[in-house]
Design a protein around this nucleic acid. Structure first.
Lengths: 365, 365
DNA sequence: TTGTAAGCGTTATCAT
DNA sequence: ATGATAACGCTTACAA
């Protein structure tokens, strides 16, 4: 997907429908008086006839103030439509009630499940999610991580591309959780590929396949290596031959581009690093006249949204991505609340989702 | 200028270029536990032999100090591995270098594109994206919006469910941009449905359809109303009958549930509020033995990821969602930088994407 | 239980 | 050009 169209230069070619001249000034830059800007604890204190510090206590740590004044203060706050200023609060405390999430590629639907899981869980605990992407680039990732570390209470790295050492350094400053990769000394959430892969390979073997190709993901991807190892092991166990093919990028387009290599490999079954590759590959193979799964079986990874819309629907090893995001957020939140959970790696199960893109070979090879 | 490098928390620098590790340790404050705190402008001031305010000037508005002291200060900052404290900076200025985005439903792929567009554009301008969802609930949306208003420089509301008045109220505090809805006095980015819809309806009419059903979205959805109006107008123009059907929710599942009503309506062509509904509807109709498009044509809205994976691939009126997100972010950013763009609505074009789910009726009704 | 006051790190408004 | 100093809104010992 081209990012070009997204980076629009400063030009509005849209139709302006507002007939009235712009009257009201947003008053965005000025602060202080004049503006009906948010009330402070001082305003509340005045209205409630108490000291600002009492207001602070009542609003931040309930219980440290008498029930009576508590109510008075809360009413006053309500009346003034009070909103805490998170920055003023963060200055003394260092806490911001936000957690950061950095994903490798916003373009990739895989990460949307993760984002969703993390956001939902964070919101449920009254935390806000801050999002950034690394565009599959270690440098961009590091930059984003550093910028975020200043503003968030904790950070989730989904499929990080940076060095282990760098991750540990980040983790030494603030709580960090990693998804889709295992880093020593850092809490991680990792789908355990073995179950899903062995199910997939067993299924392929049972359908008479002998030669399996694995289409790899980005070189920096820890998960891609793990999956390849899993495929190798499972193929060995099932007495199948496995070859590894490179892809240019882990996208639908990358899948299309690798179709030729797949054909040349002589494999009758392909397992791809992710569903996007699988979908692109299938499209290209079908466009070239191949019948799936009669002539070639295709198995993806992740079970992203839309994987079951393809023709035939995609067989895939499902990773519970939403759960990963949620678990990582939970890990972080527990860490933040001092309830240090288990330091080790959280493993979530994978499973084969058997659909139409894999099956018995109908044509002799 | 990138603020990234300045935001490095202490000891986070992975690419250490400084050989002298033992360099002066910044005056560590007694805050909390023995956490290694960051250097402040006071530390730099002391090291550079200047006043803290001079340091602030040098680091925030280059050009207000002499070139000589500028260099001295920058060197000292470098040596101390200084990073600005965003909270401290935000307190007097109110600026946070972040923009907020609230979407109606994180689960809905429609918003993925919007999120992507907004994040990409924001990141390109060195802004960070803060994300929240309203879960289609006006109340949740307002809560999230209020919470966010405190922490962000500007807010994007994608398909907001709250009242116009509330939106204007929010907009009176800080820059707000709205996507998929038109609110008087607030900058909006709205796909202009007319072109796409008239193309769609003309196509249906050309294929012999007489009765069209529109499956509506959530009642609060401004866009749903707009689309229905568009469908009505276009049908009238083409001399087709149009009926409106309710859906329980704008999801794949909601689409399945509305299948019966669609059948009962006697329509031979259906236009749904969004692609999700269309996909669910198509699945359910096909499961019930209907052939698409031979017996019934289906047209969706948005052209979300995966819309072309279905069997047959989905005909849909494409909204440039990514562009919407990007434009909204741009609008906000321009507003923030004082380059107030046009106050009115930015309209982006829609177009019919003709695929296999719509076509000529093969069975007499 | 509540009031007092000292920060938190920066920016902004004065002087100088 | 640079130096003091007062905000910014909130938390938190420390008193009362």
């Amino acid at each position: 997907m081209a990012t070009g169209p997204l980076l629009l230069p400063n030009g509005y070619d849209g139709t302006v429908t507002d007939a009235t001249e712009s009257a009201t000034v947003p008053a965005s830059t000025k602060r202080g008086r004049g503006e009906k800007s948010s009330a402070t604890i001082y305003d509340i204190a005045k209205l409630a006839g108490v000291n600002p510090s009492t207001v602070s206590r009542a609003l931040s740590k309930p219980g440290r103030v008498s029930a009576k004044t508590q109510k008075i203060i809360e009413d006053a706050a309500e009346q003034l439509n009070y909103q805490v200023n998170p920055f003023a609060r963060a200055l003394p405390t260092g806490r911001t009630q936000t957690i950061g999430l950095i994903v490798a590629d916003i373009t990739n639907p895989t990460f949307f499940d993760i984002i969703r899981g993390a956001e939902t869980t964070a919101a449920a605990r009254d935390y806000t999610l801050v999002l950034a992407e690394s565009a599959e680039s270690p440098e961009t990732e590091i930059t984003a991580a550093r910028r975020m570390m200043g503003t968030v209470d904790g950070l989730i790295l989904a499929s990080p591309r940076m060095d282990d050492e760098l991750i540990r350094e980040l983790a030494s400053g603030k709580p960090v959780a990693v998804i889709n990769r295992e880093v020593d000394g850092v809490p991680c959430v990792v789908p355990d590929v073995n179950k899903g892969i062995s199910e997939a390979v067993r299924s392929l073997a049972a359908n008479g396949h002998k030669n399996v190709a694995y289409v790899a993901g980005p070189p920096q991807s820890w998960m891609s290596v793990r999956r390849w190892e899993g495929v190798q092991a499972a193929c060995e166990w099932s007495k199948l031959k496995a070859v590894r093919l490179e892809s240019s990028k882990p996208t639908v387009d990358g899948g299309r581009q690798v179709a030729r290599d797949v054909m040349d490999s002589g494999a009758t079954a392909v397992i791809t690093y992710n569903d996007l590759l699988a979908i692109g590959l299938m499209q290209e193979l079908q466009a070239g006249g191949m019948r799936v799964p009669d002539q070639i079986s295709i198995v993806g990874f992740d079970d992203i949204f839309g994987a079951d819309f393809t023709t035939p629907p995609l067989t895939t090893v499902r990773s519970p991505l939403g759960e990963c995001g949620s678990r990582a957020a939970l890990l972080l939140l527990d860490l933040l609340l001092g309830q240090a959970g288990p330091e080790g790696t959280v493993r979530v199960e994978t499973e084969l989702v058997l659909r139409g893109s894999s099956g018995r070979l109908l044509v002799a090879n």
